[in-house]
Amino acid sequence: MLDDRARMEAAKKEKVEQILAEFQLQEEDLKKVMRRMQKEMDRGLRLETHEEASVKMLPTYVRSTPEGSEVGDFLSLDLGGTNFRVMLVKVGEGEEGQWSVKTKHQMYSIPEDAMTGTAEMLFDYISECISDFLDKHQMKHKKLPLGFTFSFPVRHEDIDKGILLNWTKGFKASGAEGNNVVGLLRDAIKRRGDFEMDVVAMVNDTVATMISCYYEDHQCEVGMIVGTGCNACYMEEMQNVELVEGDEGRMCVNTEWGAFGDSGELDEFLLEYDRLVDESSANPGQQLYEKLIGGKYMGELVRLVLLRLVDENLLFHGEASEQLRTRGAFETRFVSQVESDTGDRKQIYNILSTLGLRPSTTDCDIVRRACESVSTRAAHMCSAGLAGVINRMRESRSEDVMRITVGVDGSVYKLHPSFKERFHASVRRLTPSCEITFIESEEGSGRGAALVSAVACKKACMLGQ
Results as ranks from 00 to 15, higher is better:
Asp3Leu: 01
Met8Pro: 10
Glu9Ile: 15
Ala10Val: 14
Met41Cys: 05
Asp42Cys: 07
Leu45Tyr: 04
Glu51Val: 13
Ala53Cys: 11
Leu58Thr: 08
Pro59Gln: 05
Thr60Gly: 07
Arg63Met: 00
Ser64Thr: 15
Glu70Tyr: 07
Gly72Ala: 01
Gly72Asp: 00
Asp73Lys: 00
Asp73Ala: 01
Leu79Lys: 08
Thr82Lys: 14
Lys90Trp: 02
Gly92Ser: 08
Gln98Ile: 13
Tyr108His: 07
Tyr108Arg: 08
Pro111Ser: 13
Glu112Gly: 07
Glu112Trp: 13
Thr116Val: 10
Thr118Ile: 14
Ala119Phe: 04
Met121Ala: 12
Asp135Ser: 14
Lys136Gln: 09
Leu144Gly: 02
Leu144Val: 11
Pro153Glu: 11
His156Ser: 13
His156Lys: 14
Asn166Ile: 09
Lys169Phe: 15
Phe171Ile: 11
Ser174Asn: 04
Gly175Thr: 04
Gly178Asp: 12
Leu184Cys: 08
Gly193Val: 06
Thr209Tyr: 01
Ser212Thr: 02
Asp217Arg: 05
Gln219Cys: 15
Val222Ala: 03
Asn240Cys: 08
Val244Cys: 10
Gly249Gln: 00
Cys252His: 00
Val253Glu: 00
Thr255Glu: 09
Trp257Cys: 09
Phe260Arg: 01
Asp267Ser: 06
Leu270Trp: 03
Leu270Met: 04
Val277Asp: 03
Ala282Leu: 15
Pro284Val: 12
Pro284Ile: 15
Tyr289Phe: 15
Gly295Lys: 14
Met298Ala: 11
Leu301Ser: 12
Val310Asn: 01
Asn313Gly: 08
Arg325Cys: 12
Arg333Gly: 14
Val335Glu: 03
Gln347Asn: 04
Ile348Ser: 03
Leu352Thr: 02
Leu352Asp: 00
Ser353Gly: 07
Ser353Ala: 03
Ser360Gly: 05
Ser360Val: 08
Ala370Val: 05
Ser375Trp: 05
Thr376Ala: 13
Ala378Leu: 05
Ala379Ser: 08
Ser383His: 00
Gly385Lys: 10
Ala387Gln: 01
Asn391Val: 09
Ser411Arg: 08
Tyr413Asn: 08
Lys420Val: 12
Phe423Ala: 14
Val427Gly: 03
Glu442Cys: 13
Gly444Met: 15
Val455Met: 14
Ala456Asn: 07
Cys457Lys: 15
Lys458Tyr: 13
Ala460His: 02
